[in-house]
Design a protein around this nucleic acid. Sequence first.
DNA 1: TCATATTCTTGACGCATATCAAATTCTGCT
DNA 2: AGCAGAATTTGATATGCGTCAAGAATATGA
Lengths: 260, 260
Amino acid sequence: MIVKPALPHSITGFVVSRPLRQNCANCGVRDVAPCRGLSDEGLVEVDRISYRKRVAPGGIIVREGDPASWCGVIVSGVVKLGKTSPGGRQQIVGLQFASEFFGQPFDETWRLSADAATPVDLCCFSQPAFEALRNKYPAFGGALLQDTVGALNAAREWVFVLGRKTAEEKLASFLLLVAERLGGEGCARGACATQAAGPLTCDLALSRTEISEYLGLRLETVSRQFKKLKEAGVIETSGSRTITFCDVGQLKRLADSELA
Amino acid sequence: MIVKPALPHSITGFVVSRPLRQNCANCGVRDVAPCRGLSDEGLVEVDRISYRKRVAPGGIIVREGDPASWCGVIVSGVVKLGKTSPGGRQQIVGLQFASEFFGQPFDETWRLSADAATPVDLCCFSQPAFEALRNKYPAFGGALLQDTVGALNAAREWVFVLGRKTAEEKLASFLLLVAERLGGEGCARGACATQAAGPLTCDLALSRTEISEYLGLRLETVSRQFKKLKEAGVIETSGSRTITFCDVGQLKRLADSELA
DNA sequence: TCATATTCTTGACGCATATCAAATTCTGCT
DNA sequence: AGCAGAATTTGATATGCGTCAAGAATATGA
Protein backbone atom coordinates (compact mmCIF):
# COMPACT_ATOMS: atom_id res chain seq x y z
CA MET A 1 0.00 0.00 0.00
CA ILE A 2 1.29 3.42 -0.94
CA VAL A 3 1.44 6.09 1.72
CA LYS A 4 0.50 9.55 0.51
CA PRO A 5 1.08 12.01 3.38
CA ALA A 6 -0.95 15.16 2.82
CA LEU A 7 1.85 17.67 3.20
CA PRO A 8 1.18 21.32 2.45
CA HIS A 9 2.65 22.37 -0.87
CA SER A 10 4.63 25.19 0.65
CA ILE A 11 6.36 24.12 3.83
CA THR A 12 6.41 27.37 5.73
CA GLY A 13 7.27 26.38 9.27
CA PHE A 14 10.26 24.39 8.17
CA VAL A 15 13.67 25.15 9.71
CA VAL A 16 16.05 25.54 6.82
CA SER A 17 19.67 25.28 7.84
CA ARG A 18 20.96 25.59 4.28
CA PRO A 19 19.29 26.77 1.02
CA LEU A 20 16.23 24.60 0.40
CA ARG A 21 17.02 22.09 -2.33
CA GLN A 22 14.49 21.15 -4.99
CA ASN A 23 13.46 17.67 -4.01
CA CYS A 24 10.49 15.41 -3.51
CA ALA A 25 9.66 16.76 -0.05
CA ASN A 26 8.84 20.19 -1.43
CA CYS A 27 7.70 19.09 -4.89
CA GLY A 28 4.31 20.51 -5.84
CA VAL A 29 3.38 17.76 -8.28
CA ARG A 30 4.50 14.73 -6.30
CA ASP A 31 0.97 13.62 -5.49
CA VAL A 32 -0.39 13.82 -9.02
CA ALA A 33 2.68 12.91 -11.09
CA PRO A 34 3.47 9.22 -11.62
CA CYS A 35 5.57 9.56 -8.45
CA ARG A 36 2.31 9.10 -6.53
CA GLY A 37 2.98 5.39 -7.02
CA LEU A 38 6.21 5.54 -5.06
CA SER A 39 6.70 4.66 -1.41
CA ASP A 40 8.60 7.00 0.91
CA GLU A 41 11.62 4.86 0.27
CA GLY A 42 11.09 5.29 -3.46
CA LEU A 43 10.90 9.07 -3.12
CA VAL A 44 14.21 9.07 -1.27
CA GLU A 45 15.66 7.13 -4.17
CA VAL A 46 14.21 9.64 -6.65
CA ASP A 47 15.86 12.45 -4.71
CA ARG A 48 19.15 10.67 -5.11
CA ILE A 49 18.98 9.74 -8.80
CA SER A 50 16.99 12.61 -10.31
CA TYR A 51 18.33 15.92 -11.53
CA ARG A 52 16.67 19.16 -12.56
CA LYS A 53 16.48 20.80 -15.96
CA ARG A 54 15.32 24.34 -16.43
CA VAL A 55 14.44 25.64 -19.86
CA ALA A 56 13.64 29.25 -20.69
CA PRO A 57 10.58 30.17 -22.77
CA GLY A 58 11.24 29.38 -26.42
CA GLY A 59 14.08 27.06 -25.48
CA ILE A 60 14.59 23.68 -27.04
CA ILE A 61 14.08 20.70 -24.73
CA VAL A 62 14.72 17.95 -27.26
CA ARG A 63 14.93 17.67 -31.03
CA GLU A 64 13.30 14.99 -33.18
CA GLY A 65 15.90 12.36 -34.05
CA ASP A 66 18.26 13.06 -31.16
CA PRO A 67 19.20 10.10 -28.95
CA ALA A 68 16.74 9.80 -26.09
CA SER A 69 18.94 9.26 -23.06
CA TRP A 70 16.62 10.63 -20.40
CA CYS A 71 13.01 11.16 -19.41
CA GLY A 72 11.23 12.81 -16.54
CA VAL A 73 8.33 14.68 -15.03
CA ILE A 74 7.24 18.23 -15.80
CA VAL A 75 7.34 20.09 -12.49
CA SER A 76 6.11 23.37 -13.91
CA GLY A 77 5.53 25.09 -17.21
CA VAL A 78 4.02 24.27 -20.59
CA VAL A 79 5.80 22.02 -23.09
CA LYS A 80 5.01 21.93 -26.81
CA LEU A 81 5.42 18.59 -28.55
CA GLY A 82 5.95 19.19 -32.24
CA LYS A 83 6.52 17.51 -35.54
CA THR A 84 8.02 19.22 -38.56
CA SER A 85 7.71 17.80 -42.05
CA PRO A 86 10.66 17.96 -44.43
CA GLY A 87 8.93 20.80 -46.28
CA GLY A 88 8.70 22.86 -43.11
CA ARG A 89 5.07 22.38 -42.18
CA GLN A 90 4.81 22.37 -38.43
CA GLN A 91 2.23 20.88 -36.13
CA ILE A 92 2.10 20.90 -32.38
CA VAL A 93 0.91 17.35 -31.74
CA GLY A 94 0.47 17.78 -28.02
CA LEU A 95 0.80 20.15 -25.10
CA GLN A 96 2.09 18.99 -21.76
CA PHE A 97 1.58 20.57 -18.37
CA ALA A 98 2.88 20.34 -14.82
CA SER A 99 2.79 16.83 -13.32
CA GLU A 100 2.84 15.02 -16.67
CA PHE A 101 5.41 12.43 -17.59
CA PHE A 102 7.77 13.57 -20.30
CA GLY A 103 9.75 11.14 -22.40
CA GLN A 104 9.97 8.31 -24.82
CA PRO A 105 10.66 5.17 -22.83
CA PHE A 106 11.35 2.06 -24.94
CA ASP A 107 12.75 4.27 -27.68
CA GLU A 108 16.32 5.07 -28.65
CA THR A 109 15.59 8.41 -30.26
CA TRP A 110 13.09 11.22 -29.80
CA ARG A 111 10.21 10.99 -32.25
CA LEU A 112 9.11 14.52 -31.55
CA SER A 113 10.67 17.85 -30.78
CA ALA A 114 9.81 19.46 -27.48
CA ASP A 115 10.04 23.18 -26.77
CA ALA A 116 9.30 25.29 -23.76
CA ALA A 117 6.31 27.59 -24.21
CA THR A 118 6.83 29.05 -20.74
CA PRO A 119 9.69 28.59 -18.26
CA VAL A 120 9.82 24.83 -17.78
CA ASP A 121 11.10 22.83 -14.82
CA LEU A 122 11.78 19.15 -15.33
CA CYS A 123 12.67 16.43 -12.86
CA CYS A 124 14.86 14.11 -14.91
CA PHE A 125 16.14 10.55 -14.86
CA SER A 126 18.50 8.68 -17.10
CA GLN A 127 16.57 6.07 -19.07
CA PRO A 128 18.24 3.16 -17.23
CA ALA A 129 17.62 4.74 -13.83
CA PHE A 130 14.03 5.31 -14.78
CA GLU A 131 13.58 1.75 -15.95
CA ALA A 132 15.12 0.48 -12.73
CA LEU A 133 12.68 2.60 -10.77
CA ARG A 134 9.77 1.15 -12.74
CA ASN A 135 10.97 -2.37 -12.09
CA LYS A 136 11.55 -1.80 -8.41
CA TYR A 137 8.24 -0.05 -7.71
CA PRO A 138 5.42 -1.68 -9.71
CA ALA A 139 2.90 0.90 -8.47
CA PHE A 140 5.07 3.55 -10.11
CA GLY A 141 4.77 1.66 -13.39
CA GLY A 142 1.03 1.41 -12.80
CA ALA A 143 0.68 5.14 -12.27
CA LEU A 144 2.74 5.72 -15.37
CA LEU A 145 0.48 3.41 -17.34
CA GLN A 146 -2.56 5.24 -16.06
CA ASP A 147 -1.11 8.60 -17.10
CA THR A 148 -0.07 7.27 -20.50
CA VAL A 149 -3.59 5.98 -21.09
CA GLY A 150 -4.81 9.45 -20.10
CA ALA A 151 -2.44 11.05 -22.60
CA LEU A 152 -3.69 8.66 -25.27
CA ASN A 153 -7.27 9.66 -24.54
CA ALA A 154 -6.32 13.32 -24.77
CA ALA A 155 -4.54 12.75 -28.08
CA ARG A 156 -7.58 11.00 -29.51
CA GLU A 157 -9.78 13.79 -28.27
CA TRP A 158 -7.55 16.15 -30.22
CA VAL A 159 -7.83 13.99 -33.33
CA PHE A 160 -11.55 14.68 -33.19
CA VAL A 161 -10.96 18.41 -32.78
CA LEU A 162 -8.64 18.54 -35.79
CA GLY A 163 -10.69 16.22 -37.95
CA ARG A 164 -14.18 17.57 -37.43
CA LYS A 165 -14.26 21.02 -35.87
CA THR A 166 -14.45 24.41 -37.53
CA ALA A 167 -11.90 27.16 -36.87
CA GLU A 168 -14.15 28.81 -34.29
CA GLU A 169 -14.79 25.53 -32.48
CA LYS A 170 -11.10 24.72 -32.53
CA LEU A 171 -10.13 27.99 -30.92
CA ALA A 172 -12.89 27.66 -28.33
CA SER A 173 -11.65 24.13 -27.54
CA PHE A 174 -8.12 25.40 -27.10
CA LEU A 175 -9.17 28.26 -24.87
CA LEU A 176 -11.14 25.87 -22.68
CA LEU A 177 -8.05 23.71 -22.38
CA VAL A 178 -6.06 26.75 -21.28
CA ALA A 179 -8.73 27.73 -18.77
CA GLU A 180 -8.76 24.23 -17.32
CA ARG A 181 -5.02 23.69 -17.15
CA LEU A 182 -3.70 27.17 -16.49
CA GLY A 183 -6.69 28.89 -14.94
CA GLY A 184 -5.97 27.88 -11.36
CA GLU A 185 -2.75 28.77 -9.58
CA GLY A 186 -1.89 25.17 -8.88
CA CYS A 187 -2.05 23.94 -12.47
CA ALA A 188 -3.00 20.63 -10.93
CA ARG A 189 -4.52 17.83 -12.98
CA GLY A 190 -8.26 18.21 -13.33
CA ALA A 191 -8.38 21.71 -11.93
CA CYS A 192 -11.92 22.93 -11.97
CA ALA A 193 -11.33 26.58 -12.77
CA THR A 194 -13.96 26.40 -15.49
CA GLN A 195 -16.67 25.39 -13.02
CA ALA A 196 -16.48 28.70 -11.20
CA ALA A 197 -18.93 31.44 -12.09
CA GLY A 198 -16.99 34.68 -12.26
CA PRO A 199 -14.55 35.87 -14.93
CA LEU A 200 -11.16 34.23 -14.99
CA THR A 201 -7.93 35.82 -16.17
CA CYS A 202 -4.82 33.95 -17.16
CA ASP A 203 -1.81 33.81 -19.42
CA LEU A 204 -2.24 32.09 -22.78
CA ALA A 205 1.25 30.53 -22.76
CA LEU A 206 1.21 30.34 -26.56
CA SER A 207 1.64 32.94 -29.30
CA ARG A 208 -0.85 33.20 -32.16
CA THR A 209 1.55 31.29 -34.38
CA GLU A 210 1.85 28.52 -31.81
CA ILE A 211 -1.90 28.35 -31.35
CA SER A 212 -2.31 28.03 -35.10
CA GLU A 213 0.25 25.24 -35.16
CA TYR A 214 -1.70 23.44 -32.46
CA LEU A 215 -5.07 23.87 -34.17
CA GLY A 216 -4.02 23.03 -37.72
CA LEU A 217 -4.89 26.55 -38.87
CA ARG A 218 -3.10 29.69 -40.06
CA LEU A 219 -2.29 32.47 -37.64
CA GLU A 220 -4.47 34.91 -39.60
CA THR A 221 -7.42 32.59 -39.12
CA VAL A 222 -6.71 32.32 -35.42
CA SER A 223 -6.53 36.08 -35.16
CA ARG A 224 -9.90 36.49 -36.88
CA GLN A 225 -11.51 33.94 -34.59
CA PHE A 226 -10.12 35.79 -31.56
CA LYS A 227 -11.81 38.89 -32.91
CA LYS A 228 -15.13 37.08 -33.24
CA LEU A 229 -14.96 35.78 -29.66
CA LYS A 230 -14.10 39.22 -28.35
CA GLU A 231 -16.96 40.83 -30.28
CA ALA A 232 -19.31 38.17 -28.91
CA GLY A 233 -18.22 39.18 -25.39
CA VAL A 234 -17.01 35.69 -24.56
CA ILE A 235 -13.44 36.76 -23.88
CA GLU A 236 -11.37 39.88 -23.42
CA THR A 237 -7.68 40.31 -24.05
CA SER A 238 -5.14 42.73 -22.70
CA GLY A 239 -1.97 42.53 -24.66
CA SER A 240 -2.04 39.49 -26.87
CA ARG A 241 -1.17 36.90 -24.28
CA THR A 242 -3.43 37.73 -21.37
CA ILE A 243 -6.98 36.53 -21.67
CA THR A 244 -10.07 36.97 -19.52
CA PHE A 245 -12.83 34.44 -19.83
CA CYS A 246 -16.10 36.35 -19.46
CA ASP A 247 -18.52 33.58 -20.29
CA VAL A 248 -17.16 30.06 -19.95
CA GLY A 249 -20.59 28.54 -20.54
CA GLN A 250 -20.88 30.22 -23.90
CA LEU A 251 -17.31 29.18 -24.72
CA LYS A 252 -18.22 25.58 -24.02
CA ARG A 253 -21.22 25.88 -26.29
CA LEU A 254 -19.05 27.34 -29.04
CA ALA A 255 -16.57 24.49 -28.70
CA ASP A 256 -19.43 22.19 -29.71
CA SER A 257 -21.58 24.62 -31.57
CA GLU A 258 -23.99 21.98 -32.79
CA LEU A 259 -25.81 21.95 -29.48
CA ALA A 260 -26.26 25.70 -29.17
CA MET B 1 13.25 -13.34 -16.51
CA ILE B 2 10.45 -14.06 -18.95
CA VAL B 3 10.70 -17.19 -21.04
CA LYS B 4 9.47 -16.81 -24.61
CA PRO B 5 9.54 -20.27 -26.24
CA ALA B 6 9.60 -19.90 -30.03
CA LEU B 7 6.66 -22.14 -30.81
CA PRO B 8 5.38 -22.35 -34.37
CA HIS B 9 2.18 -20.39 -34.85
CA SER B 10 0.29 -23.36 -36.25
CA ILE B 11 0.92 -26.47 -34.23
CA THR B 12 0.58 -29.13 -36.89
CA GLY B 13 2.01 -32.23 -35.27
CA PHE B 14 -0.20 -31.86 -32.26
CA VAL B 15 -2.43 -34.75 -31.20
CA VAL B 16 -5.90 -33.32 -30.74
CA SER B 17 -8.14 -35.56 -28.70
CA ARG B 18 -11.04 -33.11 -28.72
CA PRO B 19 -11.78 -30.02 -30.90
CA LEU B 20 -8.87 -27.59 -30.56
CA ARG B 21 -9.88 -24.82 -28.21
CA GLN B 22 -8.88 -21.20 -28.84
CA ASN B 23 -6.20 -20.62 -26.27
CA CYS B 24 -2.76 -19.19 -25.74
CA ALA B 25 -0.97 -22.26 -27.08
CA ASN B 26 -2.37 -21.73 -30.55
CA CYS B 27 -2.76 -17.96 -30.38
CA GLY B 28 -1.19 -16.17 -33.33
CA VAL B 29 -0.57 -12.89 -31.56
CA ARG B 30 0.76 -14.19 -28.25
CA ASP B 31 4.34 -13.14 -28.95
CA VAL B 32 3.55 -9.59 -30.02
CA ALA B 33 0.55 -8.75 -27.85
CA PRO B 34 1.14 -7.55 -24.29
CA CYS B 35 0.94 -11.25 -23.35
CA ARG B 36 4.58 -11.48 -24.44
CA GLY B 37 5.32 -10.25 -20.91
CA LEU B 38 3.72 -13.30 -19.33
CA SER B 39 5.50 -16.40 -18.09
CA ASP B 40 4.23 -19.88 -19.04
CA GLU B 41 2.41 -19.91 -15.76
CA GLY B 42 0.81 -16.59 -16.63
CA LEU B 43 -0.37 -17.90 -19.99
CA VAL B 44 -2.03 -20.84 -18.25
CA GLU B 45 -3.81 -18.34 -16.04
CA VAL B 46 -4.89 -16.33 -19.09
CA ASP B 47 -6.35 -19.48 -20.62
CA ARG B 48 -8.40 -19.94 -17.49
CA ILE B 49 -9.69 -16.40 -16.99
CA SER B 50 -10.03 -15.12 -20.56
CA TYR B 51 -13.00 -15.56 -22.83
CA ARG B 52 -13.54 -14.92 -26.52
CA LYS B 53 -15.70 -12.39 -28.26
CA ARG B 54 -16.44 -12.52 -31.95
CA VAL B 55 -17.97 -9.55 -33.72
CA ALA B 56 -19.18 -9.57 -37.32
CA PRO B 57 -18.22 -6.76 -39.73
CA GLY B 58 -20.21 -3.65 -38.95
CA GLY B 59 -21.00 -4.96 -35.49
CA ILE B 60 -20.79 -2.82 -32.38
CA ILE B 61 -18.09 -3.76 -29.90
CA VAL B 62 -18.73 -1.04 -27.35
CA ARG B 63 -20.63 2.24 -27.24
CA GLU B 64 -19.38 5.53 -25.82
CA GLY B 65 -20.76 6.01 -22.33
CA ASP B 66 -21.44 2.34 -21.59
CA PRO B 67 -19.88 0.91 -18.42
CA ALA B 68 -16.45 -0.51 -19.19
CA SER B 69 -16.45 -3.86 -17.47
CA TRP B 70 -13.91 -5.64 -19.61
CA CYS B 71 -10.83 -5.19 -21.79
CA GLY B 72 -8.72 -7.46 -23.93
CA VAL B 73 -6.47 -8.13 -26.87
CA ILE B 74 -7.42 -8.05 -30.54
CA VAL B 75 -6.62 -11.49 -31.91
CA SER B 76 -7.67 -10.71 -35.46
CA GLY B 77 -9.56 -8.12 -37.43
CA VAL B 78 -9.71 -4.34 -37.67
CA VAL B 79 -11.40 -2.23 -35.00
CA LYS B 80 -12.58 1.34 -35.55
CA LEU B 81 -12.43 3.66 -32.54
CA GLY B 82 -14.88 6.45 -33.02
CA LYS B 83 -16.28 9.59 -31.49
CA THR B 84 -19.60 11.12 -32.40
CA SER B 85 -20.52 14.68 -31.53
CA PRO B 86 -24.03 15.52 -30.35
CA GLY B 87 -24.72 16.99 -33.78
CA GLY B 88 -23.84 13.75 -35.47
CA ARG B 89 -20.40 14.54 -36.79
CA GLN B 90 -18.33 11.40 -36.69
CA GLN B 91 -14.61 10.87 -36.53
CA ILE B 92 -12.67 7.66 -36.38
CA VAL B 93 -10.00 8.60 -33.85
CA GLY B 94 -8.00 5.42 -34.22
CA LEU B 95 -7.78 2.08 -35.94
CA GLN B 96 -6.67 -1.02 -34.10
CA PHE B 97 -5.25 -4.20 -35.53
CA ALA B 98 -4.42 -7.73 -34.44
CA SER B 99 -2.20 -8.01 -31.34
CA GLU B 100 -3.16 -4.60 -29.96
CA PHE B 101 -4.57 -4.08 -26.50
CA PHE B 102 -8.19 -3.01 -26.49
CA GLY B 103 -9.79 -1.30 -23.56
CA GLN B 104 -10.02 1.55 -21.13
CA PRO B 105 -8.30 0.46 -17.93
CA PHE B 106 -8.62 2.92 -15.02
CA ASP B 107 -11.94 4.09 -16.44
CA GLU B 108 -15.50 3.25 -15.45
CA THR B 109 -17.06 3.99 -18.81
CA TRP B 110 -16.03 3.79 -22.44
CA ARG B 111 -14.90 7.13 -23.80
CA LEU B 112 -15.13 5.95 -27.38
CA SER B 113 -17.28 3.68 -29.45
CA ALA B 114 -15.66 0.69 -31.07
CA ASP B 115 -16.96 -1.06 -34.15
CA ALA B 116 -15.75 -4.01 -36.17
CA ALA B 117 -14.59 -3.06 -39.65
CA THR B 118 -13.86 -6.71 -40.47
CA PRO B 119 -14.67 -9.88 -38.51
CA VAL B 120 -13.03 -9.26 -35.14
CA ASP B 121 -11.77 -11.78 -32.60
CA LEU B 122 -11.08 -10.55 -29.09
CA CYS B 123 -9.47 -12.26 -26.14
CA CYS B 124 -11.24 -10.70 -23.19
CA PHE B 125 -10.78 -10.23 -19.45
CA SER B 126 -12.95 -8.69 -16.81
CA GLN B 127 -11.40 -5.45 -15.59
CA PRO B 128 -10.62 -6.87 -12.14
CA ALA B 129 -9.10 -10.05 -13.60
CA PHE B 130 -7.03 -7.94 -15.92
CA GLU B 131 -5.83 -5.71 -13.10
CA ALA B 132 -4.93 -8.75 -11.05
CA LEU B 133 -2.94 -10.08 -13.97
CA ARG B 134 -1.06 -6.79 -14.25
CA ASN B 135 -0.26 -6.82 -10.56
CA LYS B 136 0.87 -10.41 -10.54
CA TYR B 137 3.07 -10.19 -13.63
CA PRO B 138 4.91 -6.86 -13.72
CA ALA B 139 6.44 -7.68 -17.12
CA PHE B 140 2.90 -7.87 -18.47
CA GLY B 141 2.28 -4.37 -17.19
CA GLY B 142 5.57 -3.30 -18.75
CA ALA B 143 4.61 -4.70 -22.14
CA LEU B 144 1.26 -3.00 -21.83
CA LEU B 145 2.96 0.30 -21.04
CA GLN B 146 5.22 -0.13 -24.04
CA ASP B 147 2.25 -0.77 -26.33
CA THR B 148 0.31 2.15 -24.88
CA VAL B 149 3.26 4.44 -25.52
CA GLY B 150 3.30 3.07 -29.07
CA ALA B 151 -0.40 3.83 -29.46
CA LEU B 152 0.21 7.35 -28.15
CA ASN B 153 2.95 7.86 -30.73
CA ALA B 154 0.63 6.61 -33.47
CA ALA B 155 -2.15 8.94 -32.31
CA ARG B 156 0.21 11.92 -32.35
CA GLU B 157 1.38 10.91 -35.80
CA TRP B 158 -2.24 11.05 -36.87
CA VAL B 159 -2.68 14.47 -35.31
CA PHE B 160 -0.03 15.64 -37.73
CA VAL B 161 -1.78 13.98 -40.67
CA LEU B 162 -5.10 15.62 -39.82
CA GLY B 163 -3.66 18.99 -38.93
CA ARG B 164 -1.28 19.59 -41.79
CA LYS B 165 -1.81 17.27 -44.72
CA THR B 166 -3.86 17.82 -47.86
CA ALA B 167 -6.61 15.43 -48.96
CA GLU B 168 -4.27 13.63 -51.34
CA GLU B 169 -1.56 13.26 -48.71
CA LYS B 170 -4.11 12.04 -46.18
CA LEU B 171 -5.37 9.30 -48.46
CA ALA B 172 -1.82 8.28 -49.37
CA SER B 173 -0.98 8.10 -45.66
CA PHE B 174 -4.00 5.93 -45.00
CA LEU B 175 -3.22 3.58 -47.88
CA LEU B 176 0.34 3.19 -46.63
CA LEU B 177 -1.03 2.29 -43.22
CA VAL B 178 -3.24 -0.34 -44.82
CA ALA B 179 -0.34 -1.72 -46.83
CA GLU B 180 1.80 -1.96 -43.71
CA ARG B 181 -0.79 -3.45 -41.39
CA LEU B 182 -2.88 -5.57 -43.73
CA GLY B 183 -0.48 -6.19 -46.62
CA GLY B 184 1.17 -9.28 -45.17
CA GLU B 185 -0.77 -12.38 -44.20
CA GLY B 186 0.39 -12.26 -40.62
CA CYS B 187 -0.80 -8.73 -39.85
CA ALA B 188 2.00 -8.75 -37.30
CA ARG B 189 3.27 -5.56 -35.74
CA GLY B 190 5.84 -3.85 -37.93
CA ALA B 191 5.18 -6.02 -40.97
CA CYS B 192 7.42 -4.91 -43.77
CA ALA B 193 5.11 -5.53 -46.72
CA THR B 194 5.87 -2.05 -48.03
CA GLN B 195 9.57 -2.80 -48.31
CA ALA B 196 9.04 -5.41 -51.02
CA ALA B 197 9.38 -4.41 -54.66
CA GLY B 198 6.47 -5.99 -56.55
CA PRO B 199 2.80 -5.02 -56.52
CA LEU B 200 0.80 -5.90 -53.45
CA THR B 201 -2.92 -6.63 -53.32
CA CYS B 202 -5.05 -6.50 -50.23
CA ASP B 203 -8.44 -5.71 -48.77
CA LEU B 204 -9.07 -2.12 -47.69
CA ALA B 205 -11.11 -3.13 -44.61
CA LEU B 206 -12.90 0.26 -44.69
CA SER B 207 -15.61 1.70 -46.91
CA ARG B 208 -15.23 5.11 -48.53
CA THR B 209 -17.39 6.60 -45.81
CA GLU B 210 -15.25 5.06 -43.10
CA ILE B 211 -12.06 6.22 -44.77
CA SER B 212 -13.48 9.73 -44.91
CA GLU B 213 -14.35 9.54 -41.22
CA TYR B 214 -10.80 8.51 -40.46
CA LEU B 215 -9.21 11.24 -42.58
CA GLY B 216 -11.43 14.13 -41.56
CA LEU B 217 -12.74 14.46 -45.11
CA ARG B 218 -15.98 13.87 -47.02
CA LEU B 219 -16.52 10.66 -48.91
CA GLU B 220 -16.79 12.53 -52.22
CA THR B 221 -13.35 13.99 -51.62
CA VAL B 222 -11.96 10.56 -50.81
CA SER B 223 -13.48 9.18 -53.98
CA ARG B 224 -11.91 11.94 -56.07
CA GLN B 225 -8.51 11.33 -54.51
CA PHE B 226 -8.81 7.62 -55.28
CA LYS B 227 -9.42 8.59 -58.87
CA LYS B 228 -6.30 10.75 -58.94
CA LEU B 229 -4.15 7.95 -57.52
CA LYS B 230 -5.56 5.48 -60.03
CA GLU B 231 -4.93 7.87 -62.93
CA ALA B 232 -1.38 8.38 -61.70
CA GLY B 233 -0.87 4.61 -61.85
CA VAL B 234 0.00 4.39 -58.16
CA ILE B 235 -2.86 2.03 -57.29
CA GLU B 236 -5.47 -0.12 -58.98
CA THR B 237 -8.80 -1.19 -57.58
CA SER B 238 -11.10 -4.08 -58.34
CA GLY B 239 -14.41 -3.62 -56.73
CA SER B 240 -14.23 -0.78 -54.27
CA ARG B 241 -12.57 -2.63 -51.43
CA THR B 242 -9.72 -4.49 -53.07
CA ILE B 243 -6.65 -2.46 -53.80
CA THR B 244 -3.38 -3.20 -55.58
CA PHE B 245 -0.39 -1.07 -54.74
CA CYS B 246 1.54 -0.62 -57.98
CA ASP B 247 4.12 1.89 -56.81
CA VAL B 248 4.64 2.06 -53.08
CA GLY B 249 7.60 4.40 -53.48
CA GLN B 250 5.49 6.95 -55.27
CA LEU B 251 2.76 6.52 -52.67
CA LYS B 252 5.25 7.31 -49.93
CA ARG B 253 6.32 10.41 -51.83
CA LEU B 254 2.70 11.51 -52.19
CA ALA B 255 2.10 11.02 -48.48
CA ASP B 256 4.73 13.73 -47.93
CA SER B 257 4.45 15.51 -51.23
CA GLU B 258 6.75 18.33 -50.22
CA LEU B 259 9.82 16.25 -50.94
CA ALA B 260 8.75 15.08 -54.41
C1' DT C 1 -29.68 -15.09 -62.47
C1' DC C 2 -32.06 -11.22 -61.67
C1' DA C 3 -33.98 -7.51 -58.73
C1' DT C 4 -33.09 -4.09 -55.40
C1' DA C 5 -30.69 -1.57 -51.99
C1' DT C 6 -26.46 0.21 -50.98
C1' DT C 7 -22.24 2.22 -52.02
C1' DC C 8 -19.48 4.68 -55.01
C1' DT C 9 -18.55 8.07 -58.67
C1' DT C 10 -19.06 12.26 -61.07
C1' DG C 11 -20.51 17.05 -61.81
C1' DA C 12 -21.68 21.91 -60.61
C1' DC C 13 -21.39 25.28 -57.31
C1' DG C 14 -20.48 27.63 -52.69
C1' DC C 15 -18.00 28.65 -48.65
C1' DA C 16 -14.44 28.37 -45.05
C1' DT C 17 -10.00 28.82 -44.69
C1' DA C 18 -5.47 29.76 -47.02
C1' DT C 19 -2.61 33.10 -49.16
C1' DC C 20 -0.56 37.44 -50.02
C1' DA C 21 0.12 42.15 -48.57
C1' DA C 22 -0.01 46.06 -45.67
C1' DA C 23 -1.05 48.56 -41.48
C1' DT C 24 -1.09 48.48 -36.60
C1' DT C 25 0.02 47.22 -32.06
C1' DC C 26 2.74 45.14 -28.81
C1' DT C 27 7.24 44.25 -26.29
C1' DG C 28 11.86 44.55 -24.94
C1' DC C 29 15.74 47.55 -24.73
C1' DT C 30 18.42 51.78 -24.20
C1' DA D 1 9.97 57.69 -22.38
C1' DG D 2 11.03 56.52 -26.98
C1' DC D 3 12.75 53.49 -30.47
C1' DA D 4 13.23 49.22 -33.23
C1' DG D 5 11.93 44.67 -34.28
C1' DA D 6 8.60 41.29 -33.68
C1' DA D 7 3.96 39.89 -33.25
C1' DT D 8 -0.69 40.73 -34.34
C1' DT D 9 -4.49 42.52 -36.84
C1' DT D 10 -6.88 43.67 -40.90
C1' DG D 11 -8.00 43.60 -45.84
C1' DA D 12 -8.39 41.63 -50.54
C1' DT D 13 -8.30 37.67 -53.16
C1' DA D 14 -7.62 32.65 -54.27
C1' DT D 15 -8.55 27.84 -53.75
C1' DG D 16 -9.34 23.26 -51.79
C1' DC D 17 -12.64 20.95 -49.92
C1' DG D 18 -17.59 20.73 -48.66
C1' DT D 19 -22.33 20.52 -50.22
C1' DC D 20 -26.05 19.14 -53.02
C1' DA D 21 -27.74 16.33 -56.70
C1' DA D 22 -27.75 12.73 -60.15
C1' DG D 23 -26.18 8.67 -62.10
C1' DA D 24 -23.20 4.35 -62.29
C1' DA D 25 -21.28 0.45 -60.18
C1' DT D 26 -21.32 -2.91 -56.71
C1' DA D 27 -23.09 -5.95 -53.29
C1' DT D 28 -27.00 -8.69 -51.35
C1' DG D 29 -30.69 -11.89 -51.24
C1' DA D 30 -34.41 -14.38 -53.31
